[in-house]
Design a binder for these strands. Structure first.
Lengths: 346, 346
DNA sequence: TTGAAAGCGCTAACAA
DNA sequence: TTGTTAGCGCTTTCAA
């Protein structure tokens, strides 16, 4: 403890290997080796060091370690927002694996903004995370900010909203089948004029869910009306956009009798608009949508939903990422893993 | 780029001050100073260095900086779970301040477990965060794990669920008034037998909300029945516990006609139980509760709620924390800030 | 079995 | 105005 520390604000710091070495009359290298249980060190010295380390509650300085080892034992997460049950569940899955493997997780939110995605990714990279787990923002069409990092060797695994162009592991739900089932459920419930509201058109999930929707219509002998298909560039983050889109549908001369909504926040946004327009109770229009919310059955009316195995997706993505991070040799074979969705009929 | 790097896995790394110095034929200290726009360096050299740095996309290594400066420019957050609108909104507030001030945020979840809280806190401390923002877990009664760190000088700010014993800044909502208003709303709606379900009894929020509840009953000439007051040790994380508590209330000979629920997850859990028991639609029992959820008005029946200014609380807590972190002199005067809640009548 | 010394990337006191 | 050097905490050759 030096003079400066005492006269200035007392800093929070724990003892270092140097402190231990001094106290025990050993060299720092001996202490370092003893703490890592090296075969070179005698049992007696090891015990001495370990006991003392425990006594003073020694914790290695992660920054020194990172600097030395050139890795931070941390991974960065980029999602739209944590206030979305799909993502919060995925995060729980990610944490469960990462923490058990000794990694810290840094969560960032894009709020569906391309600019914030770039800033977050840049920040995480400069923060020297060992790898990145990303679900693209609704606005993201250009992934060059990620290609650049990927090309330079930063391990990246995508989940949920994945880019075509970057060749790495990708974990997704079977969006097409999920969308197909939800749409078919509406058809089987007697609806014939089914609209579709989705996030921005270029997103992988939007494309896949649109395909499921159109396939379901087609296979059930219903025709596809382009004016029934609407996109929200901001993925539902801007409620006015959702409201505008819903109103456009309702103003059509041939109004839809049901809507299949392709996202958690969009589904909620859509319900709010219908509620506001007094179309919810009694239900003037049916809704089915992608959502991992656990309160959908409390809604009025309760709505049928497509549930994604978010927790599992998070776990799997993390396992894949750690595989890349800890690989001894460059990985050149990448997998695209597709997990099943589940339809909850309400 | 040395041989090892090329033959082994190509690492993701950016150029260092050393690289720049070598390329430009300068010393590392000159480069360092130029990059920090030091008055000692000539304009010409500065421009040379800065231009080159931009060209190679130079990013300072945060680990080296942390090691040198003895701070990490990161703060740790400990909350129950991000899948809780109160906390996700608070986190947004925290991020908005922290990021603008150049700090990274590390979010951890306790899932209301005391053990996980201890592990997370320990992990963050050993991760050398510059400060901690904490809302205690439902199980936490003993705060010695935090007292220890606090005593050693780690800046800590508590929000929402705060301990008595630790003297530092605390940001809370006016839980008593919020609870009072919600209870009085039930009374004014004609209910006379109002029960109360809360998180674990020792939590600050539980105590304050209980006070608001009893005051409201008392001031309105209603008597307090101890058998109407129930606690959930796990703060609603274990749905069976919530179900048991609700059933106990319903099995009383003198059944309550309304329940004031003191927490976001508890409110949802409670609704689910009532739904399951077919008491929700038509409503056989009224519910009002603390919640920051944005979909309460979609519920059937919609429920009256007490909203906490979570975003503001997060912002304020972060400002206070950064004040402590960046203080030139030890801070000895601490504030307890109380923000107003808002009653949303539905 | 242990120690001395170098180095990870950066800053700053001191020299020139 | 710029360079040399030491040191933050740690690991790891190389020497003893």
């Amino acid at each position: 403890m030096n003079y400066a520390k005492i006269t200035s604000v007392i800093m929070f710091e724990s003892s270092t290997i140097k402190d231990i070495a001094r106290a025990l009359g050993l060299s720092t290298s001996t202490v370092s080796r003893a703490l890592r249980d090296s075969y070179e060190i005698s049992t007696a010295t090891k015990k001495l060091v370990m006991d003392y380390a425990k006594q003073v509650n020694y914790r290695p300085n992660p920054n020194a370690l990172s600097l030395k080892e050139r890795r931070s034992k941390s991974i960065g997460i980029v999602v739209s927002e944590v206030a979305n049950h799909y993502f919060s569940q995925a995060i729980n899955g990610i944490e469960s694996i990462a923490n058990s493997r000794g990694y810290t997780v840094i969560i960032t939110q894009t709020h569906e903004s391309f600019e914030r995605e770039k800033t977050n990714v840049q920040h995480l990279a400069s923060r020297s995370v060992d790898g990145l787990l990303i679900s693209l923002s609704a606005e993201t069409d250009d992934v060059s900010h990620l290609e650049h990092l990927h090309a330079r060797g930063l391990p990246i695994v995508f989940f949920d909203r994945v880019p075509e162009r970057i060749n790495t592991h990708k974990i997704i739900a079977d969006n097409a089948i999920g969308a197909y089932q939800a749409t078919e459920h509406l058809i089987n419930s007697g609806f014939k004029k089914i609209a579709h509201i989705s996030s921005s058109a270029h997103l992988s999930i939007s494309i896949e869910r649109l395909n499921g929707y159109t396939d379901a219509l087609h296979n059930n002998g219903l025709s596809i009306h382009p004016e029934y298909i609407k996109n929200c560039q901001h993925g539902g983050m801007i409620q006015d956009e959702v409201e505008a889109v819903v109103k456009e549908l309702l103003n059509l001369k041939d109004k839809p009798d049901a809507i299949f909504v392709a996202g958690d926040r969009l589904t909620m946004g859509c319900m709010h608009v219908l509620k506001k327009l007094n179309l919810l109770n009694p239900a003037k229009i049916a809704i089915a949508g992608f959502s991992n919310s656990d309160v959908l059955d409390l809604f009025n009316p309760p709505i049928t939903s497509v549930f994604q195995p978010a927790f599992d997706m998070g776990q799997l993505a993390t396992e894949k990422l750690l595989e890349l991070i800890e690989a001894k040799f460059p990985v050149t074979e990448f997998e695209r893993t597709v997990l099943n969705t589940r339809l909850f009929i309400r």
